[in-house]
Design a protein around this nucleic acid. Structure first.
Lengths: 351, 351
DNA sequence: GCCGGTTGCTAAATCGTGTTAGCAGGGCGC
DNA sequence: GCGCCCTGCTAACACGATTTAGCAACCGGC
């Protein structure tokens, strides 16, 4: 059924030259190898007439370069997150004529191993190993055999892998600063993590880092957090419960929710108690999930730059690939991307 | 840096046989070609000791089969939709030892052409051409040269391509039936599309089909729709506006929102008018977006089976690939997947 | 007339595998 | 002793490109 592809041999024949010559011309090495102008034009014309395209599989076998990279993540479906990260990676890849393989491990070790093998079997030029929430990961052995980059994850223990992560500490600083700028100094409560750093499970890297940034800024301003409530899972339901418990005891001046889903629950709890956002209580949050603009008032939040993370990962991977092909060692740098503030309507000035 | 992969030649040498023999054994053709048991065991042992894995690129070149499929969509990031569809496809592919290339066209023709070329250059075994919202698409010429399946889209004009789509008409029927079962017969309004089929822009295939199903059931039950309001875009804001306009004129008994985002807006408008869901007004919707369980009361909605759509697309594509390799014509069937009802708390019984 | 250098191209090997035709050797029948 | 069949394996080509070494022809100088 498929009308067999045109091969280099056919182009060469039509142009009346050898395959070698045709290959050289099409690789742009005519000058270098002193191919005459007329022959060059004939080859180019023949290729155009036959609508010739290189067979990438063959080139891959011969050169070892497939212009293909693997994108492995623990899951591709949780939240919108994945979509934008993949989108960023896919677009950055396409601009460089690379194609992306994608796969997911669901956090299972054997799937991970199998997937990385399947990709190496197909001779990918490099691998992006992504996590859907920021965390420290055990680096799979299969990643050390070629260029690789960690995305939204940092290596557990020492490692020569480069990684790309959002600047969560900076995000914490921004959130605190937003409240400070609006004049809030008292009655500021956290929803999602305890008020002290040791009240956060350390696996939730984003949590401790955001909290670190928050503390940093408040301490610098002489402001003390009024309290904080842990949520075992950062879902609306848990945010709702945690906020209700808080409101039964006191009426806060401002809430810092550890993500937008928690904030959705917090809005509902505030509504239950007849409190208005932002006139009674201000709310800041993290992530910039689409829902942040759907709720009323629109939520001020510190955005996870998913799209940029995806793009950056392929850029860093390309640098690793270059350094690999030059025989030099992996770069092993950590790239932190800023998390931009989305100022909306959930924070009011306090006199 | 990469410790060069073990090749078949090395396995053969270690086992003391020719490459041909090693190849045959590892392909499981020992019986067929009368390879002695002892030789067979030696080869297998050698392969295991060296941790040999076939080079998929080489196999691809030799056999023309790369165990790779392309997933091309107009966009991979809009809504959670894409994530689940891709997840379904990725998992179904992995179970069959296939890897997925992904790419997005952003609806631009030249990107689409380039992407399909890039995939064909890499000798993909087949292509899934996905749309992120159900619609009729012009079939790209590049899809007719090999096995391909349309996902969430139907071919414009006649075509031999198979397609996989959600059963939107059935979804419309389900939504109507949910209200009928709860005793609603009067004051039922639509938010998102006009009450009559001709009040829907035909590009919005989901809209006309959902409405078709709704009409079918209501007509069969002798029930007439009280009205409907078009939303130019199915977003919360537009749903909010449309619902407010409606509420200024009348108080409905039930709302059928054309998707969950519109329903979010409708909830807000109802709240503005002091109307309670579901005691004052019942609400049914479509899609089962995550937000449906975040709002209060939880939304009864007819779910888009994204994950299953992705899986099904791979299954159908595999059948097309089989029929292609047998030299028979493409199957050209349309597969409609049921959209399940998620009964939650937004519909109350009317006496 | 010989040597050396340039110009312009090609033959042939290579990447790692799949596959087909065929070879060597042994056993058997007559 | 010859022919034939079977068993068990291998040689050799193919897939579609890249790349290196080298060949033929011409030119110029002495």
């Amino acid at each position: 059924m498929s009308p067999r592809r045109v091969t280099l041999a056919e182009v060469a024949e039509r142009a009346g030259v050898s395959r070698s010559t045709a290959s050289l011309v099409l690789a742009g090495r005519s000058r270098e190898l002193r191919i005459s102008h007329s022959v060059e034009q004939q080859v180019i014309a023949a290729a155009k007439e036959l609508d010739y395209r290189r067979n990438a599989v063959s080139v891959g076998l011969r050169t070892g370069k497939t212009r293909t990279i693997g994108f492995v993540s623990d899951t591709v479906a949780t939240s919108r997150l994945a979509g934008d990260m993949i989108k960023g990676a896919v677009e950055a890849a396409r601009e460089r004529d690379l194609l992306l393989f994608i796969g997911e491990t669901e956090g299972e070790e054997d799937l991970e191993v199998g997937l990385l093998q399947a990709m190496h079997d197909r001779q990918v030029d490099g691998i992006i190993f992504a996590s859907m929430f920021t965390r420290a990961v055990e680096t799979p052995a299969a990643l050390t055999t070629g260029p690789a980059v960690l995305l939204n994850a940092v290596p557990k223990g020492q490692s020569t892998l480069s990684s790309v992560v959002p600047d969560e500490i900076g995000a914490g600083r921004s959130a605190a600063q937003v409240l400070l700028d609006a004049g809030h100094r008292d009655g500021i409560h956290l929803i999602g993590v305890g008020p002290r750093i040791r009240d956060v499970p350390p696996e939730a890297l984003a949590g401790v880092q955001r909290l670190t940034g928050i503390h940093e800024v408040f301490t610098g301003a002489g402001v003390e957090l009024a309290g904080g409530r842990i949520c075992s899972d950062w879902q609306p339901e848990l945010g709702y419960e945690a906020t209700r418990e808080l409101l039964r005891e006191t009426t806060p001046s401002a809430l810092i929710c550890l993500n937008d889903r928690i904030a959705v629950g917090a809005y509902q709890a505030l509504d239950d108690f007849g409190l208005k956002v932002p006139s009674d209580v201000s709310v800041v949050s993290f992530d910039d999930h689409p829902v942040a603009t759907w709720i009323r008032p629109k939520l001020t939040t510190i955005a996870l730059p998913h799209y940029e993370l995806g793009r950056k990962a392929v850029e860093v991977l390309l640098r690793e690939m270059d350094s690999d092909s030059e025989g030099s060692a992996p770069l092993g740098e950590t790239h932190r991307l800023p998390m931009p503030v989305r100022l909306r309507d959930s924070v009011a000035a306090r006199s």
